[in-house]
Design a protein around this nucleic acid. Structure first.
Lengths: 264, 264
DNA sequence: CGTACAATG
DNA sequence: CATTATACG
């Protein structure tokens, strides 16, 4: 069995002080994808950057304290690639991928936006550039006999079942019609939304709750963290859970880990 | 008896959460001078800005989160004046004074500097401008039959006895020869350093300890908070203490209150 | 080392 | 509501 977790840690240094390391020590995952590390490798304590028993591949942003993604693997990767070949995003700390046996795993932190801002324009440009890359990646991996898994915070809820307050958020960044369509086009290009495929008929499970108000207590969340798998891998998915409880005792992120087990 | 306290609170909002309000409720002072309020009045909770049983006069900086001084009095002032008439410092939140019966009390936050920086130039300009004001203030108050008391963080240690590490700080801002001479000229212009006058032969008592390292535990401090009184008032000073213990249990500032009792 | 701000989410 | 950066002290 291959177990993969993905979680936006909202600042790895802060998360490490509050419970992330205990979660990591207890997880049975073989691969962990992290987003919003928000630190350069040199700013991280050794046991946070390279935890005992893991290989780690980090991609940080040129802007200090922003974004930052990583992939932790129990197996030593045969290759690590930072970015996806589009100049604007090469040093933005938004994508890193590693090659494992029969598998390419990417950790993605898609830009978050606000309607009418330059941040949203950046998100739009990222989406436009990333879709062709996904297609190309799948084709190249297939030629090498590898499946593809892109985990991360996509900052888009796909459908009404993917956020509690869908009615009031129809004009909100992250649930705009064109963003939803774009994510749909990802799922139509040979990739599967693994959690939704295993749980087609439920609301959620949400993976992000605002720190404001009582969003977490009321489970007023969004499902914006996905495991997006090529079809061969998606067919092997057996269980999928959002580890909401992982952040119960002391909440160490506003996101919860999304964990999937794939048959060998 | 007239009891006056002065304390640099290093952020009144933070101090209020950590013990300042309890200290204020317990103090027997008639007048309390505050420095480094670091908030506009509108940013302060009512009970912090205008504590029950006190009249308050605030002067905040045009730059948010910087400086800010206040005077709390049990007696209602007959006048409140912000600044000392020098344009550069009129909106800097560094000086406010109130008129009481037979007394003018000012709360001063003299700029802190670093050798070779524009901040130090600003400190120099402030010193140059403030000394003539002190002379004028004393003369005008005398004509009205009032004594003068200027309390605050002067950001200068006068003599070797006024800081623990005087040997290693001879080229440090706050203990530069010309700063010490300037403060000496204040004390020669008809004002008295009340705490030193009552305790001429002791090291300290220090009123500020860096938050860095073990400065507080080692009493490696500086005496930079003064009560500077006109001669008639200085002659009435009976006791002077630095309330180091006030910040023991939970340290609510890097400075401690300096409290003096004056006979009626 | 700690309090503020600002930007980001 | 939280993390981070930076300025200031």
């Amino acid at each position: 069995m291959l177990t993969v977790s993905t979680v936006n840690v909202n600042g790895l240094r802060a998360a490490a002080k509050k419970g992330y390391l205990e979660w990591l020590a207890a997880t049975g995952a073989d691969v962990v994808c992290l987003q919003e590390v928000r630190a350069e490798p040199g700013q991280l304590a050794d046991e946070v950057r390279d935890p005992e028993g893991w290989h780690s591949a980090h991609a940080h942003s040129a802007v200090k304290g922003r974004s930052g993604v990583a992939v932790l693997t129990r197996e030593q990767p045969t290759a690590v690639r930072v970015g996806f070949g589009v100049e604007e995003f090469e040093h933005s700390g938004r994508y890193v991928e590693v090659e494992l046996t029969g598998l390419v795993v990417g950790s993605l932190y898609l830009p978050s936006g606000e309607v009418g801002t330059e941040r949203q324009d950046e998100k739009d440009r990222f989406m436009a550039a990333f879709l062709p890359y996904l297609v190309e990646l799948r084709e190249k991996a297939a030629a090498d006999g590898r499946e593809v898994l892109v985990c991360g915070d996509w900052n888009i809820a796909h459908r009404q079942a993917d956020l509690k307050s869908w009615k009031t958020n129809q004009k909100s960044a992250g649930f705009l019609p064109y963003e939803r369509e774009w994510l749909g086009s990802v799922f139509e290009s040979g990739y599967t939304d693994v959690v939704r495929a295993l749980h087609p008929d439920v609301e959620g499970p949400y993976s992000w709750w605002s720190y404001r108000g009582k969003a977490f207590d009321n489970d007023s969340g969004w499902r914006i963290d996905y495991q997006v798998a090529s079809e061969g891998l998606a067919a092997r998915a057996e269980t999928a859970v959002v580890e909401r409880a992982a952040t119960y005792a002391e909440r160490w992120s506003d996101h919860a880990p999304v964990t999937v087990e794939y048959r060998d």
